[in-house]
Design a protein around this nucleic acid. Sequence first.
DNA 1: GATGAATGAGGATTCATTCAT
DNA 2: GATGAATGAATCCTCATTCAT
Lengths: 201, 201, 201, 201
Amino acid sequence: MPERGVATRAKLIAATQDVVREIGYAHATTRAIAEAAGVAEGTIYRHFPDKVALYFAAALDQDGALIAEVASLPKQAGEGTVVGNLTTALQRLATLRERIIPLEMAMRSDPELIERRRTMTPPLPSDGPSPPEAIAQYLGAEQNLGRIRRDVNCLDAALILLATLFGIGIGLMPNDTADMTDRNNLLIRSAVELFLHGLEP
Amino acid sequence: MPERGVATRAKLIAATQDVVREIGYAHATTRAIAEAAGVAEGTIYRHFPDKVALYFAAALDQDGALIAEVASLPKQAGEGTVVGNLTTALQRLATLRERIIPLEMAMRSDPELIERRRTMTPPLPSDGPSPPEAIAQYLGAEQNLGRIRRDVNCLDAALILLATLFGIGIGLMPNDTADMTDRNNLLIRSAVELFLHGLEP
Amino acid sequence: MPERGVATRAKLIAATQDVVREIGYAHATTRAIAEAAGVAEGTIYRHFPDKVALYFAAALDQDGALIAEVASLPKQAGEGTVVGNLTTALQRLATLRERIIPLEMAMRSDPELIERRRTMTPPLPSDGPSPPEAIAQYLGAEQNLGRIRRDVNCLDAALILLATLFGIGIGLMPNDTADMTDRNNLLIRSAVELFLHGLEP
Amino acid sequence: MPERGVATRAKLIAATQDVVREIGYAHATTRAIAEAAGVAEGTIYRHFPDKVALYFAAALDQDGALIAEVASLPKQAGEGTVVGNLTTALQRLATLRERIIPLEMAMRSDPELIERRRTMTPPLPSDGPSPPEAIAQYLGAEQNLGRIRRDVNCLDAALILLATLFGIGIGLMPNDTADMTDRNNLLIRSAVELFLHGLEP
DNA sequence: GATGAATGAGGATTCATTCAT
DNA sequence: GATGAATGAATCCTCATTCAT
């Protein structure tokens, strides 16, 4: 049975994700977040010491889900096709991160958040590989199976794949497309195919 | 020789780029910008109708330089290697955009700026292809020369390359490296090589 | 043997005195007081209608003890020395009031408390003389015994003695002394001696 | 010719003294002070870094006048009567401090202000003796002239006199008298006479 | 009696913008 | 053109108080 305030905390995290996505990090005020969560402004401070702590909770909210998602990737080495495995994994990551992309951007561009993250006690000992690690492990396993070129640095390749995913997620491209999710999933597949087959004939 | 006001305008734009990079878009106040520019706060409003206009001027400041930079790319088709041509071009873009990456992020994630950009009169009739267009043209030319696979959508490939560049520029990767520029240039080269040769054996 | 609620009430009063002394009247929040008392914030309102009532209870808490302390003073007229009798009485008052000096200051300088006190029903029919009255009575008795000059207004003298005591208690003097209580007791004795013997040769 | 904001600064200091006296230190909000000064709330922060700095400026506002007032006291040794000299000096001090007594109390009872004062850079090298020093010097000079007993510690006596003045100023006595200033001046004279002649016959 | 989550008015402070100089 | 004092709405946060448990 959930204690009295667990639901409120969850509402605040969801509201933060929604508000930052809808009106932007710079305009996501405590007032707007409280209103979206359907609680009083003061209630925020019963659950989080300050606004930045709420941002962090909202941004890291799905870290567990992300890690769980990619944890199984290395085991898939040898099954199906490399393109298929990576495309599926990246598309799932993209879906999971859709809500928090603006928060991730803020955490990477706002020096206040960067510093805070640096000095923050890590939330959990993270019982699984992070996305870049998991992808690098998967690529390494495929390398051993001969399905990936031997002269490739797997960690760099994983980072580059994720950088591409991030760039696509931000909507680097002219974003007047109606269904952004579909468009992005197509681009992710194209990107993976390009990465695998190469541009050269 | 620039008149008095022109120099002030340039100082404000440079100060905006510096301040946004150093303390973040959300914390870049008019006071901080004016101080960095060495002018009084009120002076901002002699050159720009409001703060958002200053952001735009700062963010689009180097659009001309970017366009000039990539304009020559299509003409290089057939010369040197594809990897070399793209690597050089992307590294130059990265260098030019280093100052304004945080502003670009803000312009893509802050709905206020997105809307403002939508309703803004385009600054110049854009006397050249934009970076994605130029890269797509280059890839198309190489395709005609047989140096790029025929079954590749050149515009998508260009967008994916730029998304990767953007993701790298944001510092998606653990950014504890001292010389970020060198690290990024290496990653850009790796990314281009991956894109060209593919991961598959 | 006190019931459950009586002990809680006492804890709240003691906590209020402690907290006001430690962090100041202006910063003594209900949260801090409840925490110091080891009870929940809501519990305060089970014992007092509001925070001001708690302040009053804490400030007047030792009025009974003060009155009891000075009640015996007039009877001492003629015994020992005047200096000794007054010094002992004032030092005892100082000790008793040590805990509540900041609350007394607040009750004399915060118009909200002053007004509230004015309209408050007097807590007890005051079964004894107040400190100024008791001291004045004592001085009058000594006057009759010829140990105090006849041309002295005893009530004024008592008020002045207490004003001095209050000024000393506030720590008017440079308060870097380690043991403030000892220093104050010495000053009280010096003050009484000055008052009695006079500065003139 | 006073610069643009000197008058505003003075208005803010006067308003702070008035508001703290009228509604108490704990209720003297920036809003109330700004309103009393006839300026916008934000204007406070153009002249003072924060509210505490404004309190300090208001509390120390008349330190120069106080020091100037007592500076001449030691030179009066031997002139007139000791009672007259001290009474006049103390009554003048009382008048000068009337506006700031509540602020002085706050500065002595609020740990935040005490700490701030401790770490504050002294406003001026204070080109004169402080009130306790000046009074002690005066008493010492009279001692040399034989008008004060030799076995008296002049600094302690000065501190005790000022403690009495402070206690009287706070209104330790039942403060329902209409004209508090007159009543206080009478008490000050009585206190000085008591101090000089002593209570003993 | 006791709790502590929730409240929302109010607090200090910031900030984009204006305007007299 | 340039200044910087003034503005006041808006921001983050606090706090006395209430109430369902």
